[in-house]
Nucleic acid binder design. Sequence first.
DNA 1: CAACAAAATTTCCTATAGGAAACTTAATTA
DNA 2: TAATTAAGTTTCCTATAGGAAATTTTGTTG
Lengths: 207, 207
Amino acid sequence: MSVEQPDMPELKIESGSGAETNVEPLKLGQRLREIRKNMQLTLEEASQKTGLARSTLSKIENEQISPTFTAVQKLAHGLNIDIPQLFAAPKNAMASGRRVLTRAGDGTSHPTSTYEHELLCTELANKRMIPFKTRVRARSFDDFSDWVRHEGEEFLLVLEGEVALYTEFYEPIALQEGDSMYYDANMGHGLISLSNQDALVLWVVAR
Amino acid sequence: MSVEQPDMPELKIESGSGAETNVEPLKLGQRLREIRKNMQLTLEEASQKTGLARSTLSKIENEQISPTFTAVQKLAHGLNIDIPQLFAAPKNAMASGRRVLTRAGDGTSHPTSTYEHELLCTELANKRMIPFKTRVRARSFDDFSDWVRHEGEEFLLVLEGEVALYTEFYEPIALQEGDSMYYDANMGHGLISLSNQDALVLWVVAR
DNA sequence: CAACAAAATTTCCTATAGGAAACTTAATTA
DNA sequence: TAATTAAGTTTCCTATAGGAAATTTTGTTG
């Protein structure tokens, strides 16, 4: 099956977790200047379009001031750029590094009374998914004060133990090891362990 | 820990309503409050994580001030939230059904010479992620005719065995059970099993 | 309910963003 | 080259964001 071989260095064993290239800090001013230049606008013209003073724009582009959120909104609206574009590199969403390694157990832990989340990708800027491995501590739906509910979709895979997924609009459902669930996270949801051991699940959230 | 009970899940079955239309796009302050509440953080704790004063956070959440760009960055970094998420209007992508169950082994199988994919969510219309469990048959990079490369991002978790992930621009890397990887799928990639057994991995692709 | 504790808000002050106009630099033309 | 003009920058002032501490609100316990 082998045809043309891409560059394929020898297998190297690494030990740590994390991004494998350095992360570059975000330069908002530089970026805005770039965008304005590409549109062939002078500061004066940009000023008209955005309603921000010429001087203010200059200072923002030269990173002499940090614009307020409202200023950023005016900029985005006036120049017809969507805000996420300001925060992501032009072509590639994963500009700061194209792959990130997380060794077993090396994720960052976020314990609560009901769950113990281990974030499996520590450098999440601009990424579309949030993966984490979760130890389910809750044993009863009463353990939650309210539904968990947020923008996005979730994929759930049971790694160990047995759980019950509670969601709005549906009846609770029992899930064994290997079972998986895909659902709308805007719908209230919560997970409990059905055995007397904590259960272990993989969760991936798409935003 | 039981305090107040959310609406009774046991009794509720999908009613005719289905998708409640979302109201106005959330304002930044409301959005942040929601996120913080979901993380179960007090203003004090959020203050510690972000480096912003408790009072400042309060004012931002109540929309009494417009945070500077730097403040927004501190917020995003400290609370581990993606900045575009703050600006995106919440919209409901999962119009029809709001959750889909796939029992262990019930996914649809897609065997090739190098991989055996089991799609973990059979009803994928309009969904943001594609989850599948894959048996890795390949033993050498030569088993592939060329890089696999496509739009989107991928999350990979090793469930069983030991694999090596080959990607462009980087050296191949060995992954044991529990290790995970997040990478840009536009970058050529391929997976092989390092033992003489097939390896088992979970793969989630965001489109 | 009173008394307390914890969280959130408001006050007050300082630091800094935003705007008008003065100033400087760059580009063109005579 | 100087004169002219358009672009960008800096100055100076006002408006407002950010932080420390006081105050109010909310939640808990006797």
